[in-house]
Design a protein around this nucleic acid. Structure first.
Length: 566
RNA sequence: GCGCCAGUAGCUCAGCUGGAUAGAGCACCGGACUUCUAAUCCGACGGUCGCAGGUUCGAAUCCUGCCUGGCGCGCCA
């Protein structure tokens, strides 16, 4: 598709004298009008003519020099229609040439993108809320990988902070009553909840916790640190189970604790920039020069310990020194917008040149129908349970619809997990979403399984063709005339991929996949592939293979499996 | 109170950053399995784009005000 657009821009540029870069080729609102469109409004001033007149004149001129593309003036627009055989041959050819790398490129060569994703908290369960950061972040990383960027996916584990002081206190008091080995996360969660219940009536708890955290932060390798280490190990082991089901890996897994040795130098660095001051016993950076009434950023509390912001500042400097990134993306919930404004605010006050490269890629909150999720109040949905139930549901449907299927359990897992992941990626990321079981367990319509099913059906056609030895003839590309909407959709994938990267928006990929799958389904139900005249079957098979490959490529970017059968 | 984000079909959402007659899925209704997997397809129904002004050849999209919902606002992360 890109090739056609370039050709049109050059031709328009030649005809008008306007630089090709200033000419925007669009998609017509109604596909019946044409495959590509050029609105003539932008030329009205330069040429001092009404857009419809320009369109008519230019269309006539272009028709003399364009081969295989027809220009049709429609009001103020010029619509372009590529000759169907040429269109099919070109797009299918591009997909065949690039295979599983279709649409990929080297746009990002030499550029580094750092992505902070997932970032669960030690001793807390991975909820469906963490799913968002993990799955969105991983998709953004794959999308950039496909465009040739060097990407660094960092899992920034929440393993530091006063709550570890609290947990150590809780373990010391009641640890003997819980079973940490069989289900550590749930046991720790129960302890955490109990701690908060009892803290009100027993002030010694808070005192002890504060002492514990001070000891932890002091670096003393004693009881507190040993307990903390054990907690992180137990938790990480649990998290890994889920990451492996989601097919997510990281280039760097570092806890906040990793930045412990960098905290002092970071604070010194900020002080050296002359932007710190003491306020009510705490060390702060005043941010009102950035925005009126903006709350200050606290670097050090009255008790001398550091905060989340301090550690994140240490981390961002460290990352910049290590990777010299072109973009540093934080895939973190929208409820932390203010935190990142503060982080960037401090960098701005320090006149750090690369501050604009740091971006908060916020996503909407996941809520339950009965209200906001709350770990403390036990109002959470565990990710593991969601994946399990989705896989079970998929297994049931397979038993019903395709009982002969080999590896049914493996495929049920792929379909179930695919449904959950796709569901999480299908809306614009900044929108809040409500977690509704029924919705997650739906496998029809705009869902992962729908796309997977379409892919499997295409695979089935190819297998049957191979058995029958069909498709060896020269393709008759004109036989794909009715497939034009599908072919055009396939042709637009490279542009969609680039747009998704620029906006850090995986939903552009899911949306393309849904539409493309719908077009595939609409096409093949009306056009039988096998057993036609040899040239026709050959052409249709080439399209089937290309569409299957493109769908698989899109799913791969999202981390969703594309089973051959289901 | 202040600051961000959102409001499009009964529900969940697209709408290509200002362009053509606002589109999908779900739900509901009517059709299609001796034919490459019916997790599918075809059709019908469904709209005061939150409200009111403004900017211009043109606004769901931009600016202002208001209404509604979500999130955040100094020693949690």
């Amino acid at each position: 598709m890109q090739a056609f657009e370039t050709q049109l821009r050059d031709a328009l540029s030649n005809a008008t004298g306007v630089p090709a870069a200033d000419l925007r080729i669009e998609n017509p609102r109604d596909p019946a009008l044409g495959d590509l469109a050029f609105p003539c409004f932008v030329l009205a001033k330069a040429l001092k003519k009404a857009p419809p007149a320009i369109a008519a004149e230019l269309a006539a001129k272009l028709n003399d020099e364009l081969e295989g593309i027809e220009a049709i003036a429609t009001g103020p627009y010029i619509n372009f229609k590529v000759e169907r055989g040429l269109l099919a041959k070109t797009i299918v050819g591009e997909i065949e040439a690039q295979g599983s790398q279709y649409g990929h490129g080297t746009d990002g060569a030499g550029k580094t993108i750092v992505i902070d994703l997932s970032s669960p908290n030690i001793a807390k369960p991975m909820s469906v809320g963490h799913l968002r950061s993990t799955v969105i972040g991983a998709a953004i990383q794959r999308i950039h990988d496909a465009l040739g960027y060097r990407t660094v996916g960092i899992n920034h584990i929440g393993d530091w902070g006063i709550q570890f002081g609290k947990l150590v206190t809780a373990l010391d008091r009641w640890g003997s009553e819980v079973d940490l080995e069989s289900d550590p996360i749930k046991a720790l969660l129960a302890l955490y909840v109990r701690y908060h219940e009892e803290e009100e009536g027993d002030p010694t708890l808070a005192e002890q916790s504060s002492k514990n955290f001070q000891e932890l932060e002091s670096g003393v390798d004693g009881h507190v640190r040993k307990t903390w280490k054990r907690l992180t190990e137990l938790s990480l082991r649990e998290f890994d189970k889920i990451y492996s089901r989601l097919g997510v890996t990281f280039d760097e897994v570092r806890g906040e604790a990793f930045y412990e040795p960098y905290l002092e130098s970071t604070i010194e660095r900020i002080q050296a920039a002359g932007v710190t001051q003491m306020s009510e016993g705490a060390l702060i950076v005043d941010l009102t020069p950035i925005r009126k009434k903006m709350a200050p950023c606290l670097l050090r509390k009255t008790d001398g310990t550091t905060l989340y912001a301090t550690r994140d500042l240490a981390a961002v400097f460290h990352r910049h020194e290590l990777y010299d990134f072109d973009r540093c993306l934080y895939v973190v919930g929208g409820d932390q917008k203010f935190h990142f404004e503060q982080l960037k605010g401090v960098l701005k006050r320090m006149n750090v040149a690369w501050e604009p490269k740091v971006e908060h890629i916020a996503f909407g909150m996941m809520n339950l129908p009965e209200g906001k999720m709350s770990t403390r109040e036990g109002r959470v949905v565990f990710l593991e349970d969601v994946l399990d139930r989705a896989a079970e549901e998929a297994r049931k449907i397979i038993a019903e619809k395709n009982p002969e299927l080999a590896n049914a359990d493996v495929i049920a897992e792929q379909v179930g997990v695919g449904a959950v992941v796709f569901n999480d990626l299908k809306r614009e990321r900044e929108k809040d979403i409500q977690f509704v079981w029924e919705e997650v367990l739906t496998f029809e319509g705009e869902t992962g399984p729908y796309v997977q099913y379409t892919h499997a059906r295409l695979g089935s056609i190819l297998r049957k063709a191979a058995e029958a030895g069909e498709g060896t003839a020269d393709p008759d590309w004109r036989a794909l005339e009715d497939a034009a909407p599908l072919i055009l959709r396939l042709g637009r994938f490279p542009a969609v991929l680039r747009s998704a990267a620029e906006h850090a928006e995986p939903s552009e990929i899911t949306s393309w996949l849904s539409t493309c799958a719908r077009e595939v389904n609409a096409w093949y139900t009306q056009h039988r592939v096998l057993g036609q005249e040899a040239g026709i079957t050959a052409a249709r098979l080439r399209l089937v293979a290309a569409a299957k490959s493109a769908l698989a490529g899109g799913l791969a970017l999202l981390g969703v499996a594309a089973p051959e059968e289901m």
